[in-house]
Design a protein around this nucleic acid. Structure first.
Lengths: 224, 224
DNA sequence: CCCGAACTGGCAACAACGTGCCACTCGCGC
DNA sequence: GCGCGAGTGGCACGTTGTTGCCAGTTCGGG
C-alpha cells in the first residue's frame, strides 16, 4: 500500500522526521514489537504520537496470537518514582517489560521481524534514526535484541528492589562465602570473624536486598 | 589502505567469499573483537583461517590497551566434552568468553566498533553474510551484542555446572515459592502439599543443582 | 578523663530447616 | 487378593540459622 520506500536502509534526521516518515511502522506492528532503550526518555514523543488514537492493535499478553509488546530497559529507567509509575503502567497495559542489568548504549526497535530502527548518537543537532529493512540485518538485530530481552529480569521483580546500594568489599566476601555453600561457622572462620558478626553481616545483606529467606537473597543478589 | 570497498552494506555468499573478501577485517581488529554465536560451529572455518599465521595481534586480557576479545555463546556450546575443551582453550588464550542463557538465533561479529558482520539464515545453499559499515548501525548492533555479552555468565562459572536437567512444572512452582521468600510451612500450604513433601522437593532441587545451602541454590537457579 | 556512638563477640532462646523412620495409599503385574 | 515399588504425610530429633541481650572495645568529641 502507499508509496514504495522499500530501500534497505534509510536515515532519518530528528524525531519529527521519524514520526512523519516511519510513524506508520509503529502502528503497523501486528505480531511483535520489540524495543530496547536505556530509559523512558527515548522514543517517548515519537512512539506515543504514533500510537495515539487507537492506532495500535490490542495487546494480548498471554496469548500466542496478537501483538507481543516486549520492552527492555536498563536500571536507569527505575531511577525515580515517576519513572517507576510509568513503567508499571506500561507493564499493566500488557507489555512484557524487562530490566536489563547491562547498559544499552543505543536504542533499538524491531517490528514484526521485518523492520528495525536504530537510534544514532545523541548530541550536536538532530538525532538520527536508521530504518533497516534488509532481512538478514533485521533478523540479526532482532536476535540480539531478543537475547537481551530474554536475559533481562521482569520489571515486577525489580520495582521494589530499586535500592541496590553498592556493596563494599566486606559484603562481597560474605557473599562469596554464602555462594560457596559454606555453613555460617565455616564462613566465619574463613573470613576471620566471629559467628555472631558473620550472621550480622548476612542479616544486613538480606535486609539490604529486602529478602526474607536466604534462598531469596541468593536469587536477588545474583549479578551483584 | 588497499582498495576502497567502503559500501555501507555488502552481502557475501558462502564462507569462502567471507574469508576472501572480509578475512582482512578479522585480522585488522585492534581494540575489540566482539563475537556472538549459538555454538562453536559457526565462524570456525572462516575466522580460524583469517587468524592463522599470527595475523592476530596478541591479546592482553586484563589490560585496557590491546585487543579485547569478547565472545558470547549459548549453552549449546557446552554440550559435549569436546566443545567444552575448545571453549576452555579459547578462554585460556585470553578471550573473555561468556555463556548467555538466552538463545542467539543469528551470529554476529563487531570489530573495533567500526564494522559488523551478521550471518544470514542457514539452509538452502550457501550461507550469506552481511558486512555493515554504516556507523550508526554498527554502533547499534554493538550496543546490543555488548549488552548480551555483559549480561552473560563467565564461562568459568558454567563449565562444571553443565548438568541443568530441565525442571518440570512442579519444580518450577517450588522455585517460585522459594523465590518469594516464603517459609516452608507457608509454601507447602500454598502449593497444597505437606511440609514433609515440600521439603523433599527442595532437597531434590538442591541436589539437582549441587547446592549445599539454600543461598547457593538461589544463586545457581537464577535463570531457571 | 568521661561520655556516647558504633562495633564486636559470647550466650541463650527460638525459629526454621534437614532427614531418618514408619505407616499409609495407590497402581501395577502376577 | 497378594506382593511390590513409588510416592506421600506424620513424627521426632538433630542441625543450622535468627535474634535479643549484654558485656567489652575502639574512637572522637567535649
Amino acid at each position: 500500500m502507499g508509496h514504495r520506500e522499500s530501500a534497505d536502509f534509510v536515515t532519518l534526521r530528528g524525531e519529527e522526521e521519524l514520526v512523519r516518515r516511519a510513524g506508520d511502522l509503529f502502528a503497523s506492528a501486528r505480531e511483535e514489537f520489540l524495543c530496547g532503550a536505556a530509559d523512558l526518555v527515548t522514543w517517548s514523543g515519537g512512539v506515543n504520537a504514533a500510537f495515539a488514537d487507537g492506532k495500535r492493535p490490542p495487546l494480548r499478553p498471554g496469548r500466542h496470537d496478537g501483538l507481543a509488546m516486549r520492552k527492555v530497559y536498563t536500571r536507569r529507567a527505575l531511577g525515580d518514582p515517576h519513572s517507576e509509575r510509568r513503567l508499571a503502567a506500561i507493564a499493566a497495559s500488557g507489555a512484557q517489560v524487562r530490566i536489563s542489568a547491562a547498559p544499552l548504549a543505543r536504542e533499538a526497535i524491531v517490528i514484526d521481524r521485518r523492520v528495525a530502527i536504530l537510534a544514532g548518537s545523541e548530541g550536536r543537532g538532530a538525532r538520527t534514526y536508521t530504518v533497516v529493512r534488509a532481512a538478514d540485518v533485521v533478523e540479526g538485530i532482532r536476535s540480539l535484541l531478543y537475547a537481551t530481552w530474554e536475559a533481562a529480569d521482569d520489571v515486577a521483580d525489580c520495582l521494589g528492589a530499586a535500592a541496590l546500594p553498592e556493596l563494599d568489599e566486606e559484603a562481597r566476601s560474605v557473599l562469596g562465602a554464602l555462594s560457596a555453600g559454606l555453613t555460617d561457622e565455616a564462613a566465619a572462620r574463613r573470613l576471620g570473624m566471629s559467628l555472631r558478626t558473620y550472621r550480622r553481616r548476612v542479616a544486613g545483606l538480606m535486609a539490604a536486598v529486602g529478602a526474607s529467606s536466604r534462598f531469596q537473597a541468593g536469587v536477588r543478589v545474583r549479578g551483584r
